[in-house]
């Protein structure tokens, strides 16, 4: 079982890369016929990833997102799932290249850093852990999508302003669609991540007492979330629009990810506290 999980884990980035290649061809208008074939491709990719998670779950006998790299794989899966829903709703497939490239990177990092040892932290056996983990991953998914749409907005805005009417211009969805997708995703992401972090705090205080409050990653996570929330709320109150909102969304996400990397380097797992 463990061997199968390992094999599948290394194959998954290849599958993601194939999907990225297909979306690359669609984006640059190389093969129009591929446009009608993306849905089964995405479904196949989703099933492969779900199978990998299920096999890992059965092999480890625990939810496979206790380590940072496990979480990245789950984040890639979650992004893929949300993108599938988005693509089913709209005809435009341009965001596929950006979103799946990001998911591919997450999966690549995850696949080559997986541990196949079960983590024995008692926090992970708490019944609220699954809720905390799911909300956090969904929050990160929404914020990732928001950042990708914001990046697309900035690229499209620059192309429109500089009159670069090439392949990228042709494939990009309208600016107001990119803007609304980015803003909605931030709103959903901030709320989900906030509730997820709060649930984590509740769970940790129940299991570990109160000393974990002084933990640097708890402090970093709380500060980052709070500043994300405050700047978003302020920008909305001041009715910021267009590229400034896109810059805000993108920089907020980059700070969040950078802080995540800092937190990961401090400890191998999210769930050990100093």
């Amino acid at each position: 079982m463990k061997q199968l999980s390992q094999i599948l884990s290394y194959i998954l980035p290849v599958f993601y890369l194939c999907a990225v290649y297909i979306y690359y061809n669609i984006f640059f208008g190389k093969k129009k016929e591929l446009e009608n074939k993306t849905f089964p491709i995405l479904i196949a990719l989703l099933i492969s990833h779900a199978a990998e998670i299920a096999i890992r779950l059965s092999s480890l006998r625990a939810m496979p997102f206790s380590t940072a790299f496990d979480a990245l794989s789950f984040l890639a899966f979650s992004i893929l799932f949300i993108y599938l829903l988005i693509e089913s709703g709209i005809k435009n497939k341009a965001s596929g290249l950006f979103i799946l490239s990001f998911a591919f990177l997450l999966q690549l990092i995850s696949s080559f850093n997986h541990t196949w040892e079960r983590e024995t932290n008692e926090l992970l056996s708490s019944p609220t852990f699954a809720i905390h983990a799911s909300l956090t991953v969904m929050g990160y998914t929404a914020l990732s999508l928001s950042a990708i749409y914001a990046l697309m907005y900035i690229i499209h805005h620059q192309n429109m302003k500089k009159r670069r009417f090439g392949a990228i211009y042709h494939q990009m969805p309208p600016l107001d669609y990119l803007e609304s997708m980015s803003i909605r995703s931030v709103a959903i992401g901030v709320i989900l991540l906030g509730v997820g972090i709060f649930m984590g705090h509740v769970q940790a205080s129940r299991v570990l007492g109160s000393f974990w409050f002084a933990d640097p990653k708890v402090i970093i996570s709380d500060i980052i979330w709070l500043s994300y929330f405050t700047s978003y709320a302020l920008a909305r109150a001041m009715k910021w629009r267009g590229r400034w909102m896109a810059y805000l969304s993108l920089s907020g996400f980059l700070i969040l990810m950078t802080s995540g990397v800092i937190v990961f380097t401090l400890t191998e797992t999210f769930h050990k506290f100093y």
């Binding site: 208008g29 129009k32 016929e33 499209h156 429109m160 211009y169 042709h170 990009m172 969805p173 309208p174 600016l175 107001d176 669609y177 609304s180």
Partner: peptide, 24 residues
């Protein structure tokens, strides 16, 4: 399966096409 019929080929339609890149 091709882009043979894609894109505006008259000035006034090109205006509409451009606007569609801003407004959904």
């Amino acid at each position: 399966n091709t882009f043979l019929a894609d894109g505006a080929v008259s000035i006034s339609f090109a205006g509409v096409e451009l606007a569609r890149k801003i407004f959904n």
